[in-house]
């Protein structure tokens, strides 16, 4: 690719430079930012043509589309940053329909004064995440708001993917008797962000689990195309996800506390912060609901994948006109696992 540099004799100052209003004005400064930063990092055939849109070849079948706005604070946290999170989050939303993600778009709202060095770090992290996931970022947009009117950077990503023939995954398909599985330990993302934000030394080694899950999903569908429901328990955690599914499907659920995978360090941090791991956000986990005959196969496929090594069967779907999600506690009692009331952790993704 040959690019003329004569319009901006000086390259962008990625050491001390900062975002200013001209970077979103549609003028020369914006063109330079796009070429020297976004094109450089995301480089692919769709972006190179510098059109206002990407023209895409789409395979036959049903398409899945999802969009996700990211406002996490802090922007950089153990295990990830807003860049990788914005790629993983949208890929996962597309993948939860059983779809193979194909393309992403990215829109940036930058705050005047934001260091270009941090912006480059974020963009490079996005590029790496997209490359590793093999899902290109094919179109995008950049706007700049005045200092004090944003919080550094907000990123909105949109993704589309194609759903394999015969796959029919939806939140309203859980049926009494179905098994409930999760792909690994709960609560790491929320606790990592919270520990970072609050400067909790003892929990500083807990890393976000942010990851793209479409590979894991593909492995699961390979062994059981008839999976009923997939969902990634992000904000509101597993408890919220299960309640959403129970309501959409008109069923109840009974899970067992002793089967819930929670790491000791997350359990300890939650204890300290007064949080319940069931309600803490994950960014690299999924919940799966499938027919009993598929459960063992799906569980084995999950455990064989690097992102599902600690997968577990945690309970089953019940008949319940009230759509209550209940849990058998470690002591042998019962309780409800209700919707989150209010907000547990703000600005988590």
């Amino acid at each position: 690719m040959s690019r003329s540099r004569k319009d901006w004799p000086r390259p962008l100052d990625f050491r001390d430079g900062r975002v200013d209003m001209t970077h979103g004005s549609g003028g020369r400064a914006m063109a330079q930012l796009i070429e020297e930063l976004f094109l450089e990092a995301f480089d692919n055939q769709y972006l190179r043509s510098l059109n206002d849109q990407a023209c895409l070849a789409v395979p036959p079948g049903r398409l899945a589309m999802a969009t996700d706005a990211h406002v996490v604070s802090p922007l950089f946290f153990p295990g990830g940053d807003i860049g990788s999170l914005s790629v993983h989050g949208t890929i996962n939303d597309v993948a939860m329909a059983g779809a193979r993600p194909l393309y992403l778009s990215a829109a940036f709202v930058l705050e005047e004064g934001f260091p270009l060095a941090d912006l480059r770090r974020i963009v490079q992290s996005m590029a790496l995440a997209a490359r590793q996931a093999r899902v290109p970022i094919v179109t995008g947009d950049t706007k700049v708001v005045e200092s004090g009117k944003g919080d550094g950077v907000f990123i909105t990503t949109t993704g589309i993917g194609v759903i394999p023939e015969g796959v029919e995954i939806s939140g309203d398909r859980a049926r009494p008797g179905d098994r409930i599985l999760v792909s690994g330990t709960l609560g790491k993302h929320g606790v990592a962000v919270m520990a970072c934000r609050e400067g909790l030394e003892f929990a500083s080694h807990i890393r976000s689990d942010t990851a793209a899950l479409h590979g894991l999903v593909a492995a699961m569908i390979d062994v059981a195309p008839g999976i009923h429901v997939l969902r990634d328990p992000t904000r509101g955690g597993l408890a919220t996800t299960l309640n959403e599914i129970a309501r959409a499907s008109g069923v109840g659920m009974m899970i067992e506390e002793v089967r819930l995978p929670v790491s000791g360090e997350v359990a300890a941090a939650c204890e300290f912060l007064g949080l319940d791991p069931l309600y803490v956000a994950n960014e690299g986990k999924l919940a799966c609901i499938c027919a009993p005959r598929d459960a063992e196969r799906v569980l084995a496929a999950m455990r064989a994948h690097s992102l599902g090594a600690k997968a577990a069967l945690i309970g089953e779907v019940t008949e319940d006109p009230n759509c209550f999600v209940q849990m058998k506690t470690t002591l042998g009692g019962r309780r409800m696992v209700d919707w989150l009331s209010g907000e547990q952790l703000p600005r988590i993704c």
Binding site: K328, T329, T330, L331, G332, G333, R334, R335
Partner: peptide, 9 residues
């Protein structure tokens, strides 16, 4: 009491 379902015991 609520969290562990003690009333059931």
């Amino acid at each position: 009491i609520s969290r562990y379902g003690i009333a059931d015991l």
